[in-house]
């Protein structure tokens, strides 16, 4: 890993954890956390610089601190906390990335740039192949929202990689990150007492555990290990697939199937009340699902996630407490029923 690491988006849980993690790394001399708002959690002794990456001031930060590794994690689908709407999120995602990359281009010390992207870049559509590889071009490009931000961000990153071929650029496309302290919209969705679903669709979902997300970010931010290559674009997801119906049963939360138009309407209503952020691309994900291939992650990047999709989800489910229909209680009921039935049938024979 480089000597001086700059991490954006440290006011979020994942950014904060990543900073604390690499702070313990013996090779790293200095960690600089950047965000527009001060984090509520501690950063483990890392320096915090309150700077908005949407402003050119970030270039000065890079030049003054002689940063060699930039980990750009300030790409998000939802605003942090209740402040700021979709417009400011989009600005941070797109304009922020542009400014940051512009600053990196001017900074001769930068050797490595890691971008936390998302598999949202593939969109979710029924006409796409069942499994996306890094080179799949989606049939219908996302028309708006976070997914479009990501498409634009990755476009800028590719442009940057062309202009600065000496910088190792790594784009990590994460599936839905879940974990005990995940604050993603999907985590919020799974915390609802009753899960609204789209009638007649059972999407396939993939999850990454937070710990795995941090591990792979570290691998990408460090010098490549023997026989691996950590520049390029990689899908990051746990093994296996869970259907939405399976997740609801494992969580013990009943589902409420709604017609697709109703879901869209209900999503808008809930969003305006502020209960949950049920954005249109979230609804598309929960309608058609998305599965990515992770062969490149294993063979080229040399990363093997510790948690499968199911294990990451189980870990998350444990942290959220039981729902209305805990699976253990249901299993006990069935076992009791089995006991009653066999007891009744034994004397008859």
């Amino acid at each position: 890993m480089g000597k001086v690491v700059l991490v954006t988006g440290v006011a979020r849980q994942l950014g904060g954890r990543f900073v604390r993690r690499i702070r313990r790394d013996p090779d790293v001399e200095r960690v600089i956390g950047v965000d527009a708002v001060a984090p509520e959690h501690h950063l483990g002794g890392a320096e915090f610089l309150r700077a908005d990456i949407r402003h050119p001031a970030i270039a000065r930060v890079l030049a003054e601190t002689r940063v060699d590794t930039v980990v750009h994690m300030d790409i998000n689908g939802t605003p942090l906390g209740k402040r700021g709407g979709r417009a400011s999120v989009k600005e941070t995602n797109v304009i922020g990335t542009m400014q940051l990359l512009g600053a990196c281009q001017k900074a001769p010390t930068v050797e490595r740039v890691v971008i936390k992207s998302s598999t949202s870049v593939y969109g979710s559509a029924p006409r796409d192949p069942a499994v996306f590889t890094e080179t799949t071009t989606p049939k219908s490009l996302p028309s708006g929202g976070f997914a479009k931000d990501i498409v634009e961000v990755e476009g800028y990153v590719r442009g940057f990689a062309r202009r600065r071929p000496d910088v190792a650029v790594c784009i990590l496309r994460f599936a839905n990150i879940l974990g005990p302290c995940a604050d993603s919209p999907l985590a919020e969705y799974f915390s609802l007492p009753v899960l609204p679903t789209v009638l007649g669709y059972d999407p396939r979902l993939q999850f990454v555990h937070e710990d795995d997300a941090l591990d792979v970010l570290r691998i990408a931010a460090a010098a490549p290990r023997r026989g691996t290559l950590n520049s390029g674009t990689f899908n990051i997801a746990g093994d296996g697939v869970l259907l939405l119906s399976q997740t609801s049963r494992r969580l013990g939360r009943p589902t409420l199937p709604l017609f697709l138009p109703t879901v869209t309407w209900a999503g808008t209503a809930l969003r305006s009340v502020g209960i949950t952020d049920f954005s249109p691309e979230q609804i598309r994900l929960l309608t058609h699902g998305r599965v990515v291939e992770t062969t490149q992650m294993r063979e080229t990047l040399g990363f093997h996630p510790k948690y499968t999709t199911a294990e990451a989800f189980a870990e998350f489910a444990r942290s959220r407490g039981p729902g209305l229909l805990p699976p253990e209680a249901l299993a006990r009921t069935v076992d009791r029923l089995a006991g009653v039935l066999t007891a009744r049938r034994t004397p008859a024979q």
Binding site: A130, V131, D202, R204, G240, V241, L242, L243, S245, Q246, T247, S248, R249, R250, G289, V291, P327, E328, L330, A331, V334, D335
Partner: peptide, 14 residues
């Protein structure tokens, strides 16, 4: 029991 507790596997294609 397996079905209502979600304790079954699906492959990448669902």
């Amino acid at each position: 029991r397996r079905r209502i507790t979600g304790d079954y596997e699906v492959d990448d294609f669902g």
